[in-house]
């Protein structure tokens, strides 16, 4: 796994973006950027050569699930790994995310260990 990979952290709460960015930094990933919802994230992804997306679900304008669908529908982004980190805990939503092609799903509140484990798993599967 390339520790220099470019990661986009998408969450409408800036506190959560800071937490995720800090955790990623602890795991050795320092090349991170932030977006506050799907509609801000999507153009960044299209122009930014990102390697990985960590996104919330419940956000204004464009929700995380919609962002995921847009990513999968765009040929240039379709293979981009997406990890969902969200408070949404309904089974139907987790299934919905899985069907939309999510690579991992973490429910909030979560631990640093869970984040490390899911990222490892996602990239182990890709290699």
């Amino acid at each position: 796994m390339d520790k220099n990979m470019k990661i986009l952290v998408v969450d409408d709460f800036s506190t959560m973006r800071r937490i995720v960015k800090n955790l990623l930094r602890e795991l050795g990933f320092t090349n991170t950027a932030e977006a506050d919802d799907g509609s801000t994230a999507l153009p960044m992804l299209k122009n930014g050569n990102y390697d990985f997306v960590v996104t919330d679900w419940n956000m204004p304008n464009m929700e995380g699930i919609e962002l995921l669908r847009n990513i999968r529908a765009d040929p240039s982004l379709a293979k981009l790994p997406v990890l969902m980190v969200t408070a949404e805990a309904k089974r139907e939503q987790i299934i919905e995310a899985a069907e939309a092609g999510v690579n991992g799903y973490i429910v909030k509140p979560f631990t640093a260990e869970t984040l490390r484990e899911k990222i490892d798993k996602i990239f182990a599967r890709l290699e």
Binding site: M16, R18, I19, A87, K108, P109
Partner: peptide, 10 residues
């Protein structure tokens, strides 16, 4: 301390 701040989002 950092992780405890996740309450603000939730």
């Amino acid at each position: 301390i950092m992780m405890a701040q996740d309450f603000q989002d939730l």
